[in-house]
Design a protein around this nucleic acid. Sequence first.
DNA 1: GCATTCATTCTGTGATCACAGTTTATGATA
DNA 2: TATCATAAACTGTGATCACAGAATGAATGC
Lengths: 220, 220
Amino acid sequence: MNQALKPDISAPANLSAGIYSDLQRKLIVGDLRPAENLSIRTLAEEYKVSAMPVREALRQLASEDALIGAAKKAYRVPNLTSEQAADLFFVRAVLEGAAAEIAAERVSEADIKILRKHNIDLEAAWGKQHASDFLFANYQFHRHVYSLTGNSALQSMIDALYVRTGPWLAYGITNLVKPDKWMGEHDHIITALGQRDKAETRRLMEEDARWGVELFRELG
Amino acid sequence: MNQALKPDISAPANLSAGIYSDLQRKLIVGDLRPAENLSIRTLAEEYKVSAMPVREALRQLASEDALIGAAKKAYRVPNLTSEQAADLFFVRAVLEGAAAEIAAERVSEADIKILRKHNIDLEAAWGKQHASDFLFANYQFHRHVYSLTGNSALQSMIDALYVRTGPWLAYGITNLVKPDKWMGEHDHIITALGQRDKAETRRLMEEDARWGVELFRELG
DNA sequence: GCATTCATTCTGTGATCACAGTTTATGATA
DNA sequence: TATCATAAACTGTGATCACAGAATGAATGC
């Protein structure tokens, strides 16, 4: 997950790894919808490989609860309940808050520039109500911040949360359009980072993570 | 990982799942040592199954960085560097601290009683310098606390950290005996929980997580 | 006696097959 | 036309085989 997100299968140490990261990306940006079924054999045909690498990728995603895998039944994208979503966003706030505090100590001007770029992409996607572009830009923004910690364990854990919330967020954005609801907390985060203000950066990052829960409440 | 830790393969929805949790337990309590090699075929013989379920269990553990899986080379237990270990304990402090704060709001007298029991087991194991018993009791104690949150995403993430630090902690305890070094922070945690003191519980829990790093520093 | 090379053994990976549950579609019956 | 039984299609799971690269050993050269 530390690799760049390419549209196709990227640098394959294994075939499984390539399929895994491709599906991961599709989950993060919401290309796969809640309750959607994923079949080993069908995906194997699409990726033009045997069933073997696909089943390993799916099993791996299921072990992270990014997919649901019941015995003898098709894998499927989870449909989060309100409690489950709230739990995920809580953990995200805790981890990203701690990460942001460290990031504020290490951020450079080059980082600020990159974050601004991601934020422009993000607002453009929001203006067009393009869910997957929005989620991708949002992920890129946040990822750049918490990658500044240099803590790979922390990074992969946060990544896993984006994978799990992606399908649900995409559904919420697409089916529950509230363009005025989102005010762009990211600008404030960039400002706080630029000022190396640890406490404020943390506070804003936690608040931003909570935004997902807000959106969720209206979905019911 | 939310299942009880049994010595043998437990309720097998799959064969893979049973092997997975058995290896997981062995990692947590340090039955597997750093740099130890795990071969698919060898384990398949031990578990009396084909290679199929074993390779899926190993791949899954490798995906969580609980094992190292290079291409065409044997899976092996990671040998943590000082930076890696510090990163893991940092995340553990962040997550368990947040969890402890919630636990302090929800803890019951029955919970306190269970925690005391785990603590007695823990100190007995420490007195005998029995690494795996100690790590198991320690895990049970902490797990009971953060399970009080009811947040399964949070729980499985913390579990994953115990899996990754287990082998290294066992090595440290066995090869670097400092019986006087450890003063039993757990008693204070139980007290703070009993008083429903959120801030103090969090502070103590974060401090306790930092203990692993201390032990680590002396290991070099 | 020591280093180097080559063969053997061991490693994970991918493909293919058989099997047993699940789901879906079809057809018969009222 | 609606409902239920039955069969066909689809699902993940486990086992087995072939293969290529890595590690290990022994034998050969110096």
